[in-house]
Design a protein around this nucleic acid. Structure first.
Lengths: 233, 233
DNA sequence: TTAAACTGGGGCAAAGTTGTGGCAGTTCTT
DNA sequence: AAGAACTGCCACAACTTTGCCCCAGTTTAA
């Protein structure tokens, strides 16, 4: 899902430069020539980040920033030609997350935008649901449950981690060493067939599903789907 | 609960100035003369924010920043005498949340520290409400009371916090470590079954309700509702 | 073709997890 | 000051998980 950024600045060329750089990074950008129109749009359709110039026609950026803060937690970056310590401190104190002084490097702006998104991401990460599907199996890591065709499947902790790891890398085969390292946290070379054991148990529990855990001879395992009509020998 | 900030800078007077200003704002501050000792301390006892100088004896600030990022989401601010665009972009890209150039105004640093805490706060508490319901239970955090089918339920402080936390995350399973961190404020890995104890008492008090605290074997707990008619085999 | 290596099923025992009742130190209330 | 409430810990029993062993069947390579 693309992240959406709203920009308000009264200089068209600045809007253009910022937009280009951000779009180039894969963000969805919409720009406004004053703060009021940005605010109206935000009320209709919120976005994931706001970049505000301070000096604009109509309501000034600082007031817009405070108005936004009253009702949302959207990350806000202020960009401004005003470069006194007081201006910076006021902007940051009044609710913006960062304050950049014009003229600024578009690359640095992009870096700060990314850092701010990263911060939000990190803070919310624990509450994020991660969902993986493959054929008729659905894994919800937040709820910590697995379903085959909507029927709950009970897994032990190791089975759960292992299956999740396979789903996270469903497009390729994974080696036993890789599994031991990432699921068991064995850093060293261990001569164990623990992976095979859990696979054995997983396979048993997956008999009702169309998902198959294939062995890759001499290497490891790989997800695949059950072929009802296997090409006959 | 006071927020704890760690500072690493090799100039004693800078450490002193920053510490004074931050302590003045009510933060608990600890300072280190190099990044390695800060890192060691963090591993033993995490803090809520880190302020790093780039150029120090021993490991440089950027490496410390990256090492910290590998294992935590702690907010990081870099302060540095280096003032090229590349330096700033590198610092921000490598995991820090902000980058301030020396000499800087201590007041602005304080403002940015506050803004960063505010951001974390907003991200984590954005979904905080006053009232939570799940099945036949209603929690009013403002009045600090709980009702089962309109019948008041008396809970001890810890029981109340724990149940509230479960309700705030009713859509997912929560681990014991997470509960210890967020309800007990144990920052480190502790071998305790305190969570189980409170759960035991909570469950006893919830017998009259349709709400069930399910154990997620080998992981933690999860809210669910009592199934009166379990799907018969 | 044959021997060696690999895989997967059943069973087993050690280790780990969880719920329960009891208990004691601390804090709060009366 | 005495009692009540709260909370973490312990011990115990029931139960679950999991790595390993053995063994038969399969695949690979010489």
């Amino acid at each position: 899902m693309k992240q959406r950024i709203y920009i308000a600045d009264d200089e068209a060329n600045i809007r253009f430069i910022i937009s280009s750089f951000l779009k180039n990074e894969g963000y969805e950008v919409m720009d406004f020539e004053n703060g009021d129109s940005l605010f109206d749009m935000f009320m209709k359709q919120p976005c994931d980040m706001v970049i505000l110039d301070l000096m604009m026609q109509g309501t000034d950026g600082l007031s817009i920033c405070m108005k936004l803060r009253e009702r949302t937690n959207v990350p806000i970056i202020i960009v401004s030609a005003r470069d006194s310590e007081l201006d910076r401190i006021t902007g940051i104190t009044m609710g913006s997350d960062d304050y950049m002084v014009k003229p600024f490097s578009p690359v640095e702006l992009v870096a700060r935008v990314k850092a701010l998104f990263r911060r939000v991401q990190m803070d919310q990460k624990s509450h994020q649901q991660e969902i993986y599907t493959y054929e008729d199996i659905l894994i919800n890591t937040a709820q910590r449950n697995v379903k085959i065709k909507d029927v709950p499947l009970v897994l032990t902790p190791t089975e759960f981690s292992l299956l999740t790891y396979l789903f996270q890398h469903s497009e390729r085969a994974v080696s036993r060493a890789e599994l031991l390292k990432n699921v068991w946290n064995f850093d060293f070379e261990a001569d164990t067939r623990a992976t095979d054991d859990i696979m054995k148990r997983l396979r048993k529990k997956l008999t009702l599903s169309d998902v198959l855990i294939e062995s890759v001879w001499g290497f490891g395992f790989k997800l695949s789907k059950k072929e009802t009509n296997e090409n006959p020998k």
